[in-house]
Design a protein around this nucleic acid. Structure first.
Lengths: 172, 172
DNA sequence: TATTTTTGCAAGTGATTACTCACTCATATG
DNA sequence: CATATGAGTGAGTAATCACTTGCAAAAATA
């Protein structure tokens, strides 16, 4: 692995576990086994390093949601949406944790990227004859975000019962 | 207001808006119109200042949940729980935002304090004849946390429709 | 092979960090 | 009045912060 990437992944892991402001560039360098100056040769500054990480994260999110956004069967949309948080690859765990952390630490909303997903949920609920499709979509999204957060903070198993429960509830 | 309290409220506001690690004691002192040294006369260190804030926050949370924990009518429990996020006093806004921020920035769970509330929800669902009371309680809790977070980040109005929607959904 | 470009490091930079110290002042108590 | 005490300050402290510089080795290009 190139040192440039070692820096990025070290920063990702540290940012995700300790937070952006709590991690110094010196710490990143030591964790990546690299001189501190090299960070600034490859990235403009600390913020630029974070931007590079978020860009990669954005790609991963895009891929993850792609299957759902392409799906045409409303029931299948709901099923895939519910199952989604439970099928996040462990190797991408840090990316997800960082999303949640930054959402609050730096007030990076992430809402814009989610909107197409929520819209698709709304459409699915509409197709299935739900009266208040929009509210149903917002509510399910809240629940799924809560589940994802629960998985990140307390582990997989704690949220597992909610998966089958939701699948049953929405009959998918 | 005593300077000791001015420090506390200045720190609360700054921590809530910018985050714990992003705010220096120098900044707090200037914001509170106080010498930096005074912070450390009244509080052991920066962490001690945060602890004092959280202690006050804990009392507020306790009061807020007290009404629900004392309630005996299951329907009324659900109704009060759903309405709760919408009735947070604006003067306590910073306390709430700080809770969410610290939950992720410093990984302070807050789960322990919530557990009696979730248990009460479960009991209410059980009384109302719901099959999977525990899952219903966890799900509603996730939704309500999502709504509270939405109120804090995007404002009251954005979540308003979900209130009446939930009240209707649970028939309370 | 000669020359340029990229990659990398060690040792810096000034600014900022959390925190301490020596001290003054106001009030209270004997 | 004399003295003890706690509130308050402003100038420090060493450590750490994000970031820069000078220079060498390596790699790519000619």
């Amino acid at each position: 692995m190139e040192k440039r990437d070692k820096i990025l992944y070290a920063a990702l892991e540290l940012f995700a576990t300790e937070g952006y402001n709590a991690v110094s560039t010196n710490k990143i360098a030591k964790y990546a086994n690299v001189s501190e100056g090299l960070i600034f040769r490859h990235y403009k500054n600390k913020q630029g390093l974070l931007d590079a990480i978020l860009e990669q994260a954005f790609e991963k999110v895009t891929v993850l949601y792609a299957h759902i956004l392409m799906e045409q069967d409303p029931k299948e949309i709901l099923r895939k949406a519910i199952v989604l948080p439970f099928e996040v690859d462990e190797s991408e765990y840090h990316f997800w944790k960082l999303q949640f952390k930054l959402k609050w630490e730096l007030e990076i909303s992430g809402r814009e990227k989610m909107q197409p997903f929520i819209d698709k949920l709304e459409w699915a609920f509409q197709e299935l004859g739900y009266q208040e499709a929009k509210n149903e979509a917002e509510l399910l999204n809240h629940a799924l975000e809560g589940i994802a957060g629960g998985i990140i903070k307390q582990g997989f198993e704690t949220q597992e019962p909610l998966k089958s429960f939701l699948l049953k509830k929405y009959n998918v």
